[in-house]
Computed example of a mutant assay.
Amino acid sequence: MSDHESYELLGFDNVLLPVGNLGEAVDFYARAGFTVAYRLDEAGIALLKVGGETPGLLLRAEEEFGRQPPMWPSARVWLETTDARRATAALREAGVPTLDEPFPVATGWTVEFADPWGNVIGLTDYSKRPELGRRP
């Protein structure tokens, strides 16, 4: 039996994002429309909700992690949204600058933003392929 047959990947648990200051990160992501599921300051973590799913974005304070621009190439986390172009307007209105204008992808539209520590989040919709989205 090969190694990949000895276990099965079932789905995402959490996506960990290193941040330099937990309070500042929670405030930033609140402006970007995220809700805190729980926050444990003594452990230096906060879990942000993503839809109705249990896994989320786990912010983890790394004190030595300073502010930096998004690095390219860098890992990106894309989350499904109902409308990426409307999300762009809402982000900008809340003072969260986007990295670019919404751009077309195979399923619809995507917009990306970065937190102050260089973590890049994309919001993508399924307007071109609604049958593939969570709400067809």
Rank of each mutant, 00 (worst) to 15 (best):
residue 44 G to F: 05
residue 21 N to H: 02
residue 36 V to W: 01
residue 26 V to G: 03
residue 77 V to A: 11
residue 35 T to L: 09
residue 82 T to R: 14
residue 30 A to N: 12
residue 20 G to W: 00
residue 125 D to F: 01
residue 79 L to W: 13
residue 106 A to R: 11
residue 57 L to N: 07
residue 28 F to C: 00
residue 134 R to S: 14
residue 84 A to K: 08
residue 25 A to N: 08
residue 21 N to T: 00
residue 106 A to E: 12
residue 28 F to E: 01
residue 88 T to Y: 11
residue 43 A to R: 14
residue 121 I to A: 05
residue 81 T to Y: 03
residue 98 T to A: 13
residue 76 R to Y: 03
residue 64 E to W: 12
residue 2 S to T: 15
residue 45 I to Y: 10
residue 108 G to P: 00
residue 105 V to W: 06
residue 33 G to H: 00
residue 122 G to N: 05
residue 44 G to N: 06
residue 131 E to K: 06
residue 112 E to D: 12
residue 117 W to I: 09
residue 76 R to L: 07
residue 92 R to D: 05
residue 40 L to M: 09
residue 55 P to T: 13
residue 22 L to W: 03
residue 61 A to Y: 04
residue 74 S to F: 03
residue 118 G to R: 04
residue 62 E to Y: 11
residue 103 F to R: 11
residue 39 R to P: 01
residue 72 W to M: 09
residue 88 T to F: 12
residue 11 G to T: 13
residue 58 L to P: 06
residue 38 Y to N: 11
residue 76 R to W: 03
residue 80 E to N: 06
residue 132 L to R: 15
residue 10 L to A: 12
residue 101 E to S: 09
residue 88 T to V: 10
residue 33 G to F: 00
residue 106 A to N: 08
residue 57 L to F: 05
residue 13 D to L: 13
residue 133 G to R: 07
residue 87 A to Q: 10
residue 7 Y to L: 15
residue 74 S to D: 08
residue 49 K to P: 04
residue 39 R to C: 11
residue 73 P to S: 00
residue 54 T to G: 10
residue 83 D to V: 04
residue 97 P to I: 10
residue 107 T to S: 13
residue 127 S to E: 13
residue 19 V to R: 00
residue 117 W to G: 05
residue 86 R to K: 13
residue 83 D to I: 03
residue 56 G to V: 08
residue 111 V to W: 06
residue 132 L to C: 09
residue 133 G to Y: 02
residue 79 L to C: 06
residue 65 F to D: 01
residue 116 P to S: 05
residue 56 G to S: 09
residue 3 D to Q: 14
residue 82 T to W: 07
residue 129 R to C: 11
residue 3 D to L: 15
residue 55 P to N: 12
residue 42 E to K: 10
residue 100 D to S: 14
residue 87 A to I: 02
residue 65 F to A: 02
residue 135 R to Q: 11
residue 130 P to K: 13
residue 22 L to A: 02
residue 60 R to I: 04
residue 135 R to D: 04
residue 19 V to E: 00
residue 101 E to M: 07
residue 122 G to H: 03
